[in-house]
Design a protein around this nucleic acid. Structure first.
Lengths: 348, 348
DNA sequence: TTTAGCAGTCGATGGATAAGATTGCTAACA
DNA sequence: TGTTAGCAATCTTATCCATCGACTGCTAAA
């Protein structure tokens, strides 16, 4: 099933079928192709070609008296070789830029907006998976005393992710104690990844004895972060899923189950992480959703890869548009938040 | 349509119809009721009663040769007067207790678990709306210097909610500066609700001049919190929505749209906030989802009302069970995290 | 007031039929 | 050898119709 074996004409016909099916979601007949794409050959000829393409596995006939629809392989080939490279429309670009024109500081805020705008522009459900915190490097730890028995632990990482957690202690704490403990902890943890941090088996160093309870609490929290392999998942535009007629109740059930168990979704999306775009069509051994396609791209922010962003839609997804949008947005965001200056920036 | 006018027998019949419909989702015939609920009267008599109940608006006949199904009014009456008060089953209680047996410190963590367990036990989609932060009282503000131009603002409220936001400044900052600013800001803000805080029209006090930029940033952030009326919404078990046959594609579309626009959901749920349970059946002028019921209860934590928790399901929801579960859980959580000691507690 | 009996109504089911769409095949053609 | 016109075959979809079964509503009697 090498694509190289396809004649020019077969390619043109196959692309025609995919393009038409993406727009109309109904099987395409030889007559339709003849009318819209070919002046010079007859529908009978096209029928022969269609028959050959079906033989090769690129097309499927739902039943004898129906036209053809593309197979998974056709979509894969389409994504690989036939993508139109039309630029994004002005309104689309305006929509994207508008979403990011305000000030914003926190990653969560940026991510939410990104999810929203991806869904708005593509008209598919968007999904963003942020890498688990234990894969990033600790830049600094801050301890803040809240009251006599509680301190707030703030974790700052190299890509700016901030997590905080309240620690409750049996012993009393005061400002000086917390400050000293903070210095001590930073000496130990700064520069390591969370997953590198282990509870030391033997004795705690002499000069740590005073901070033992606090120290153990912090370690326990970091370890629990490391253990909980759950990446954070954001979604938007879930209702868009039902705008596509092939998404019947059964498919929607699968979809909602994926939505519920976000860990599985994160696994699917982070599976092949080394390529720029990941396109998963239909359900296979490695996961996915039947009758659906999942397209994701690396999600860069401030020059760092912080996760993956993409969409979930029907197999006959408008791959071209989705990829252009993802490319545009991830590029825009890769630049937008650099160097600590988070004021508005033009995206050109 | 006063319920008082209903004879004992009518009430028993009406309850029978609702109970049966909750279990089977198909119209109930006079013969069925006779078989399962009455030995002493004939189906003809029951037919007469059914006819009367239909006349009164409590029952609906989908078509002439079908049995009856309950109307919205029947459900409302059912919730009002007919609820079984069977206790929760052992397994259900075990499930709930198990979900909360670990240590946990952060509200978000508790809320997520609560959403999960409500959905698991009831088998409906759960939803929790946390009150907007601007309705709660500021307990303390913490400033932490991150680097030369950025400080982290941590907001601690009376119910323990913590929000943080990074502030970027043009001028340099250092430890002393931040500490002094922190003391100053707490003097001004502590004890107020976020919505009370307003940017002062005239001059900033003399001794604030030094902290002007920081001060204005903090005010701006608090105001933006106050303005953004969005309450935080958590959901779980969305896929459960499709386990009920009356939830067809159209209803699911409505449901997913509500899921997408969580603000609207928050509005619906926070609408009638003064009663212990809110039961909204079907769609009316004030919102809701067609063919669905939304049941919510006040969500207490640590003695404070922090929002609402509930479920979304079909109109023929198992109201009795849902209310028992919500009562049990909100009661359990009202006790579980009191006094800063977050260790395991028995729920009895 | 209750009940048995029965006619009437309606949905669901299934078969038969017809119409329409599209293909595959064949044979002729360039 | 590739292309094409023509046509039979196949399958879907819609419609109609008859039948069956499930209830109800009504009537008249208990």
């Amino acid at each position: 099933m090498k694509a190289d074996k396809l004649s020019e004409r077969k390619q043109k016909i196959l692309k025609a079928v995919v393009d038409e099916y993406i727009n109309n979601a109904s099987p395409i007949s030889s007559g339709e192709i003849k009318a819209k794409y070919f002046d010079d050959i007859s529908s009978a000829t096209i029928r022969n070609e269609l028959s050959a393409l079906e033989e090769m596995g690129y097309l499927i006939q739902p039943h004898t008296s129906a036209g053809r629809i593309p197979s998974k392989e056709a979509y894969a080939l389409y994504v690989d070789r036939f993508l139109d490279k039309q630029p994004l429309r002005k309104e689309e670009i305006a929509l994207i830029e508008n979403a990011f024109k305000d000030r914003f500081d926190e990653i969560e805020d940026i991510v939410r907006r990104t999810a929203r705008v991806i869904s708005d522009v593509t008209n598919y459900t968007s999904v963003i998976v942020l890498k688990n915190i234990n894969k990033v490097v600790l830049k600094e730890i801050k301890l803040i005393d809240l009251d006599q028995h509680t301190v707030l632990l703030v974790i700052i990482t190299d890509s700016g992710i901030i997590r905080d957690k309240v620690i409750t202690l049996r012993s009393d704490v005061n400002l000086d104690y917390v400050r000293d403990a903070n210095i001590m902890l930073n000496r130990i943890f700064a520069g390591k990844t969370i997953s590198e941090i282990k509870m030391p088996d033997g004795m705690i160093e002499e000069n740590m004895a005073e901070f033992r309870e606090l120290y153990e609490s912090v370690i326990a929290i970091l370890e629990s972060y490391a253990e909980s392999a759950e990446d954070t998942v954001y979604m938007d535009g879930q209702s868009k899923f039902l705008e596509y007629p092939e998404h019947d109740l059964k498919t929607t059930r699968d979809f909602l189950q994926i939505v519920d168990t976000k860990e599985r979704l994160a696994e699917i999306i982070e599976d092949d992480t080394d390529i720029e775009f990941s396109v998963r069509i239909g359900k296979d051994e490695k996961g996915g959703i039947d009758k659906c396609a999942i397209v994701t791209a690396k999600y860069m922010l401030n020059g760092k890869e912080i996760g993956h962003a993409g969409v979930i839609g029907p197999e006959r997804m408008d791959y071209s548009k989705v990829m252009r949008v993802l490319k545009y947005i991830t590029k825009a965001l890769g630049e937008i938040a650099d160097g600590g200056n988070n004021d508005k920036k033009r995206i050109d």
